[in-house]
Amino acid sequence: MRPLATLLTAFAIAASSSALAQETPAPDQPPVPAVDRAAGLSEWEKINAVFSHPRCANCHVEDDHPRWSGTHYGETRNHAFNVQRGTDESGFGNPGLRCTTCHFESNSNVLHGPPGAESWHLAPAEMVWFGKSSAEICAQIKDPERNGGRTLEEIAVHVRDDGLVGWGWAPGPGREPAPGSAVETFAALERWNAAGAPCPDG
């Protein structure tokens, strides 16, 4: 593998593991798992509304194709141009057609132009949200095998601080943003966790 691809792969792995979160100071009070299922589920609904929103779910797919949806894009469909996860599974596309061939550090301000954020890439396939039920997404989030080895606290911080995640609330002209904000979603994750992180019945 060429150096570029190696670098991209390494970056993907780093970004999707807990490595980045380690610098975040631990919260003063470790969450005590209270069991308030109704309150927890209410928080989860807010979180799920974000995770299952097309701005987030379109790039959390199980297969190799990011999705397009929204006004002027027709029904939800595979990203055009044969854009794919990448034969090296990196999530950064293929040689000759990387995600970053079109998606730069910031949004194009032209309607239908490519959105942008740091390190634009596809989430690993195991972190699938697209086409999944609320219960399935919830189970995935809580499963360290499929959430990049993160604690729930680390997930909340990742959602609050990561540039690419944050793009979901500022997706550029013509695109509907994910509901709420990064900070609100962080808070909802904290409260959900505090309430025992209940998942809806699947």
Partner: peptide, 13 residues
């Protein structure tokens, strides 16, 4: 329609 995202043509693949 307005651009290639909603009026495209055959691609190599």
């Amino acid at each position: 329609q307005s651009n290639f995202h909603d009026f495209d043509a055959m691609r190599i693949h």
